[in-house]
């Protein structure tokens, strides 16, 4: 596919993986090179439209996979003594940038993986103005901090909200947070 070739030619060593899923192309790049990768994709391949930024928490997925693998291993272990080599654990979060080339109508998804102990990602608000709210939402929902963002504040939840609700360890029914609105009128003696 032409797009895959040109992407891999452009990003070269920065490209960690390039995979296709249900007709969508996902390119994985290192976390600390996201700004340079996106800006070269924008300037040289014409991906000058940012559709959205998606955050994903993969912890439950890894857990399920580990469980499955363990089950499999337990089953096989009785017959086969040689264990599979342990793969290094993937970082917990990933951020996916949905890009679009308006001239050729090609879409490209750029993925970075963010480990739980280093939740800092360079902000891309300098490349697209529209990255502002998606990054804020990503921070709100997953706690990923975008460095260089002009106004990184919670977007949908209120400011004092203690957790990041789209993380997989946050329960669906919430943790009993309540928002107390404190309204203090300016007082009886305001006019007199």
């Amino acid at each position: 596919m032409a797009l895959k070739d040109s992407v891999s030619r452009l990003l070269q060593n920065d490209l960690i993986a390039l995979e296709e899923s249900a007709g969508c192309i996902f390119a994985e790049v290192p976390k600390d090179k996201i700004v340079s990768c996106l800006s070269s994709l924008r300037d040289e391949l014409g991906f000058n439209f940012l559709s959205d930024i998606v955050g994903v928490d993969n912890s439950a997925l890894y857990e399920a996979k580990a469980k499955k693998a363990k089950k499999k291993k337990d089953k096989e272990g009785e017959e086969n003594e040689t264990p599979e080599p342990e793969r290094p654990a993937l970082p917990r979060f990933e951020v996916i940038y949905l890009l679009l080339n308006p001239d050729t109508n090609e879409r490209l998804q750029v993925r970075i993986r963010v480990p739980e102990d280093d939740l800092k990602v360079q902000s891309i608000t300098s490349l697209w103005k529209g990255a502002n709210w998606p990054e804020r939402e990503c921070f709100d929902m997953f706690g990923i901090r975008f460095e260089g963002h002009p106004y990184l504040r919670r977007l949908l939840m209120w400011d004092e909200f203690p957790a990041h609700p789209l993380r997989k360890d946050y329960p669906l029914e919430g943790m009993g947070e309540e928002r107390h609105l404190i309204y203090e009128p300016e007082g009886e003696g305001h006019w007199t």
Partner: peptide, 19 residues
């Protein structure tokens, strides 16, 4: 797998990313 699909809704591009 994962997919992103968008259609032209009355307001503009309405997309769903599903993993």
């Amino acid at each position: 797998g994962e997919v992103y699909h968008a259609i032209e809704s009355p307001n503009g591009e309405l997309g769903f990313y599903i993993k």
